[in-house]
Design a protein around this nucleic acid. Structure first.
Lengths: 242, 242
DNA sequence: ACCAATTTGTCCGTATGTATG
DNA sequence: TCATACATACGGACAAATTGG
C-alpha cells in the first residue's frame, strides 16, 4: 500500500513572521505614523521568540522604511518616504542596465504632462522659486551645479503639479536621465540652451498657457536627445559610467 | 579660552556597515547576479565582527532584494526584481493616501504612450496573447477575474513597448488604478465596454496604426474616469477600501 | 547637572534541523 | 548511509548610550 504524500512545508523563518506581523498592523492602520514600537525585549516576550529574531525582523522593517530611529534610538513607526522609494527604483533601473532611449521616451511621456498640470495648479510662491532657480543657473560655475539645478527645476514643477503618482513615476527616471544627458555635454553652449528652455517654460506657465507649457517642455526634452546623440554615444546602450 | 568644538560622531552600527560593504560590491559589479555569498561564519571572520551582526546586515540586503535564498538555503546575490520594486511603490502610494484623480491623470499620461510604442514594436506572438486575453475576458464569470485580465492586458502592452522605464513607472499605478476603477462598477455593462475598448486597441495595434492605438487607449482611460464618477465616489478622496 | 533604570548594539556559546557530498 | 557544514534560533552577557526622574 502506498504512503500518503505530503507537500513539503516551507516553514517561514521566525524573523519574517515578526516582520509580517508588524507590517500587517501598520498596513491595517493599527500602528500609525509616529507610534513608538515596544522595546526589543518586550516584543520578544509578546511574540514568544528570542530577541535576536526580533532584531532581524526589525532590520527588514527598517529597510522597508516602516520604522525609523528618531533622535535617540527608540524605534518609531514610519511611512516609506517618496525619496527613498524613488531612489530604490532608480537603483533597480540602473542595475538592469536601462538605456538612454528608454529613459528619454519615458521622460517625453511624463514631463510635458507634469508641466501641464503645473501650469494649472502652481502658486505664485512656487513661480518665484522657479525664477530663482533659473537665476542661479545663470550664475552657475560648474557643470555639476547646472545638473543639480536642472533636476531641481523639474522636481519643483512636479511638486507644483500636485500629483504624487506622477511625482513618484518621474523621479527615478529624472534621477538617471538628466545627469546622463547633461554631464556629457560641453558646458557653455548647453547651459544657455537649458536656461532659455526653462525661461520659455516658466513664461508659458505664468501665462497659464496649458498647451504652450506642455509643448515647450516637450521641445526641451527632445532637445535632450539631440544633445545626447551629438556626443556620439548610442542611445541603446546602458547608461555610461556611474 | 574656548574649547575646541567637535561635531557629534553618529557611529554607524556594525550591521549597517556589513550591508553597505556588500551593497557597494554589488553596485560596483564585483559581486554579480548569481554569485554565492560566503557563509555567515566566514563573513563574520572577514569583517571581524560577530555573526549576529552579519545576520542583521543580511536581513537588510534581503529586504532590498540584493540577496535571495534559492533552492537550498545558500544565499545568492540578486538584482531587485521589477515586480517587487513596483509593489513597494504601490504600497507607498497607498499609504500616502493617493487619490483616484492622481492615479487617473498619471495613467492618462502613460498608458497611451505605452500603447503607441507597443504598436511600433509588438511581435505577432504577443498579438496572439493579447487576443487570447480578450477571449478569456469574454468568458470571464467574476468581476475579479475581469479585473485580473484587464491588468494583464495592460501589462502585456507594457511588455510589448520594450521600455523598462515605462514598465516600472506604470506598474505601481496600474496596480492601484485598475482595481479601484473596476471593482466598483456593476459587472455586465462595464465588462462589455472594456472588451470593446480592448478590441479596438488591439485592432489599431495590429494595423500598426500608431496614432490610432494611442488615441484609442486615451479614450479607454477617459472611460475609466466616467465610470468612476458614475459610482458617486469622489475622485479627490483617498482610494476606498483595501 | 547628576543618578539610576532602561535599552540598544554587540558579542559568545550552543542546540537543532537540513542540505550537500 | 553517514559525516560535515550551514542557517536558524535560543540563551545569556556586558558596555555604551538614552531615558526619565
Amino acid at each position: 500500500m502506498g504512503e500518503q504524500k505530503f507537500d513539503k512545508i516551507d516553514s517561514v523563518p521566525v524573523y519574517r513572521l515578526v516582520y509580517d506581523s508588524i507590517e500587517r498592523q501598520i498596513l491595517a492602520g493599527q500602528l500609525r505614523n509616529g507610534d513608538l514600537l515596544p522595546t526589543e525585549t518586550r516584543l520578544a516576550e509578546q511574540f514568544g521568540v528570542n530577541r535576536s529574531s526580533v532584531r532581524e525582523g526589525i532590520r527588514l522593517l527598517e529597510q522597508s522604511g516602516f520604522v525609523e530611529r528618531k533622535t535617540g534610538k527608540r524605534l518609531q513607526v514610519a511611512i516609506p518616504h517618496f525619496v527613498d522609494v524613488a531612489s530604490d527604483v532608480s537603483r533597480a533601473l540602473k542595475l538592469h542596465k536601462v538605456t538612454f532611449r528608454e529613459l528619454w521616451e519615458a521622460s517625453l511621456a511624463i514631463e510635458p504632462v507634469v508641466t501641464r498640470y503645473a501650469a494649472e495648479r502652481i502658486t505664485s510662491d512656487e513661480i518665484q522659486e522657479l525664477r530663482r532657480n533659473i537665476e542661479q543657473m545663470d550664475k552657475a560655475a560648474s557643470v555639476n551645479r547646472v545638473v543639480e539645478l536642472d533636476i531641481e527645476f523639474h522636481n519643483m514643477l512636479a511638486q507644483a503639479a500636485r500629483n504624487r503618482a506622477l511625482i513618484l513615476a518621474r523621479e527615478p527616471i529624472s534621477l538617471l536621465f538628466m545627469p546622463a544627458g547633461r554631464a556629457i555635454l560641453p558646458k557653455l553652449k548647453t547651459q544657455q540652451r537649458i536656461i532659455d528652455a526653462h525661461r520659455a517654460i516658466l513664461q508659458a506657465i505664468e501665462g497659464r498657457d496649458i498647451a504652450g507649457s506642455e509643448s515647450w517642455m516637450a521641445r526641451h526634452i527632445e532637445d535632450f536627445r539631440r544633445g545626447y546623440e551629438r556626443t556620439g554615444l548610442s542611445m541603446d546602450e546602458p547608461l555610461p559610467n556611474a
